[in-house]
Design a protein around this nucleic acid. Structure first.
Length: 386
RNA sequence: GGGUAGGUUGAGCAGGUGGUGAGCUCCGCUGGCUGUAGACCAGCCGCCUUCGGCUGUGGGGGUUCGAUUCCCUCCCUGCCCA
């Protein structure tokens, strides 16, 4: 443990086993994070289309940024010279940096994995770069994030068992090297569980990572191509093994409201995802019970706000018709307004979840929360059964 | 009125000098996006009963086995000159 993170469970799950949902308080160098919490993703030291003021207004208490992308551009050493990532991007609340492990899968053909690390070809200019656990930690220490994350090797959840096993074992070895390499006392370090959808591998990985002195436990290798049922099953394997563990549990990459609700119910404390911001830029606005596609012609004459009771900058002043116009004209304001709305919706949803847990009504409130979450996929609006 | 260049599927175009015009970009429609190579990607975008068929090159007529192409005529548009 680094001492740079203090996590306290304020409202533990009930003894009756009706849910593993809990409320916690994570204290980091740059501030406090109430859990369950969602972290918007600002890969390039910016949440696309938003200012830090926007981020504060939508209610973000912590954001995620990316080691690999900042290493490539503008360079972690430059950011360090300029006072660190917080000062560089003018965000004074907590930041968690992903280690670059995700780019092992997302960059596809542009990388080669070996036992010592990963060789990447830059997506920007084709130049060759090497990441090892030691380098990933060093870069994160240069950036100065509140929470660094061990360098891991995620694979698609649907990968063959042998592939999952190999990547999981390597992730364990890299976890130890990440711990050994980490030295910055004001920065927490989280370890990452792999194991894919294989129950025994997922369980072994959970036990192993939990046995190491990390400040938090990331559940990786999910939020990929698995079904919600498969993901829930993996959580039902992993989280109970952490029942007596005093550290926060962070499911990497999950972002739709219905998915978040499922995972909170199964005991997850932290989330991140590009989803709400990305789909917003692509014209999909989340509202209670479903979504709007602002690219559809039917919105062009609609004077109503996207969501009448939403306090965001979009809904306070503008109509669906206006936003639909902005999207058609590809006006830059569309992306800012839409992103603010979806993040407001998502973070408000997490706040509602915390409130329900605090008031002891969480399992009972699941149907209502699921109704609000809607089912954000397939163009359908349906209630996610609790 | 004279001259000239044109008229191709919502828009803008490509192509085609007697031998199968449904090709492109927009627009439009639908879907997708989950630790961001993503203000992006995919499919559709004349009609039908769609592994196919039909229609379609401004209108009409003619020549021809066959016409977007050649001929006649009419309509429309841009530009120039009166």
């Amino acid at each position: 443990m680094t001492g740079a993170a203090t996590f306290r469970v304020e409202v533990p799950p009930p003894f009756d086993g009706s849910t593993r949902a809990r409320v916690g308080r994570l204290e980091l160098t740059h501030g406090v994070v109430e859990t369950p919490q969602f972290m918007p993703v600002g890969t390039n030291a910016t949440l696309k289309a938003l200012t830090p003021d926007d981020l504060r207004e939508v209610g973000a208490s912590i954001i995620l940024s990316n080691t690999y992308h900042l290493y490539l551009r503008p360079g972690h050493e430059r950011i360090a010279r300029l006072g660190g990532l917080h000062r560089f991007m003018a965000w004074d609340r907590p930041i968690l940096t992903d280690s670059g492990g995700f780019q092992v899968v997302s960059l596809g053909d542009l990388r080669v994995v070996d036992e010592d690390g990963v060789t990447f070809r830059s997506h920007l200019d084709g130049s060759t770069h090497r990441f090892t656990p030691e380098i990933a930690i060093s870069v994160q220490e240069s950036l100065g994030s509140d929470v660094a994350v061990a360098f891991d090797q995620p694979v698609y959840p649907s990968s063959p068992r042998a592939v999952v096993a190999d990547a999981t074992d390597r992730t364990h070895r890299w976890a130890e090297r990440s711990l050994k390499a980490h030295s910055r006392p004001d920065q927490a370090l989280f370890g990452i569980v792999q194991g894919g959808l294989e129950p025994d591998l997922r369980a072994d990985s959970t036990r192993y990572i939990a046995s190491l002195p990390f400040d938090g436990i990331c559940l990786g290798g999910l939020a990929g191509d698995e079904t919600p049922e498969q993901r829930n099953a993996a959580l039902d394997v992993a989280v109970p093994l952490l029942a007596d563990d005093p550290r926060p549990r962070y499911l990497m990459g999950l972002g739709s409201p219905a998915d978040l609700l499922d995972a909170v119910h199964r005991g997850v404390d932290l989330f991140d995802s590009v989803l709400p911001a990305r789909v917003a830029r692509n014209g999909q606005l989340w509202i209670p019970g479903g979504r709007l596609n602002l690219q559809n012609a039917r919105h062009l004459d609609d004077p109503e706000p996207v969501q009448a009771d939403c306090p965001c900058i979009l809904c306070r002043s503008f109509s669906r018709a206006y936003l639909a116009h902005l999207f058609r004209a590809k006006e830059l304001l569309a992306y800012r307004l839409a992103t603010c709305h979806n993040l407001t919706f998502t973070l408000d949803f997490m706040h509602r979840i915390r409130t329900a847990i605090r008031s002891g009504t969480f399992p009972a409130d699941l149907p209502n929360l699921a109704l609000r979450a809607g089912r954000i996929s397939g163009g359908e609006v349906a209630v996610q059964s609790a």
